[in-house]
Simulated scan of single mutants.
Amino acid sequence: MPDLILRPFKPAFPLHYGFLYPAWQSRSKVVTELANEIGIVAASQVARMTDPNAHTGV
């Protein structure tokens, strides 16, 4: 698609997310590690999207 243009945008509303865990059992190590990894990746993506100097791939 040679006529495709990518432009960064800022959503009009914040996107909040979280994890739900069952209260009746403790979290396993793998669940805790996965949640931590998702948090790290999400934080880096937010930083990349909010950086006006970030490369957009264009």
Rank of each mutant, 00 (worst) to 15 (best):
H16N: 13
E33W: 04
P52D: 13
T32L: 11
P8R: 15
L4T: 09
A35K: 06
L20I: 06
V41P: 00
A42S: 07
R27V: 13
K10T: 12
M49R: 10
M1D: 09
L6R: 15
L15D: 04
A35L: 08
H16Y: 15
S44A: 14
N53I: 00
S28L: 06
V41R: 06
E33L: 11
P22R: 13
D3W: 05
L4R: 09
F13K: 14
T32N: 10
F13S: 11
F9E: 03
P52G: 10
A12L: 05
H55Q: 09
T50P: 00
P52Y: 10
K10D: 00
Y21G: 00
N53Q: 13
D51H: 10
L4C: 07
W24D: 15
R7F: 02
V58Q: 07
Q45N: 10
L15V: 12
V31F: 02
V58S: 04
F9P: 00
G57S: 06
E37T: 15
M1E: 07
S44F: 05
L20T: 05
D3V: 02
R27Y: 01
P22Y: 03
I38R: 00
A23N: 09
P52V: 06
R7Q: 12
A43W: 05
I40F: 03
T32R: 13
A42D: 03
P22H: 05
H16T: 14
T32S: 12
V46E: 04
L34Q: 09
A12H: 01
H55P: 02
G57P: 02
P14G: 10
A42F: 08
N36W: 10
H16I: 13
V30L: 06
L34P: 00
R27E: 13
S28D: 03
V46Y: 02
G39T: 08
F13W: 09
Y21M: 02
V30S: 12
P11S: 03
Q25R: 15
L15M: 10
P52N: 11
A35N: 06
M1T: 12
Y21A: 06
L4S: 03
I40T: 08
E33A: 14
Q45L: 15
N53D: 13
V31R: 01
H55C: 12
V46P: 00
S44L: 14
F9D: 01
R48S: 09
A47W: 01
V30K: 08
F9C: 07
E33R: 11
S28N: 04
F13D: 09
Q45M: 13
R48K: 14
W24C: 06
M49Q: 08
A43P: 02
V41Q: 01
V31E: 12
M1W: 07
D51P: 07
K10V: 11
Y21P: 00
M49H: 07
I38W: 00
V58I: 05
D3H: 12
A43S: 15
G18F: 06
E33F: 04
A42R: 04
L4F: 09
I5D: 03
A12M: 01
G57H: 05
L15A: 09
Y17T: 08
P2C: 01
A42V: 15
S26P: 03
Y17A: 11
R48Y: 06
R48E: 09
H16Q: 11
V58N: 07
A35T: 10
K29L: 10
W24V: 06
A43E: 15
P14M: 08
P8T: 04
P2W: 01
V30P: 00
R7E: 11
P22N: 03
K29T: 15
S26D: 14
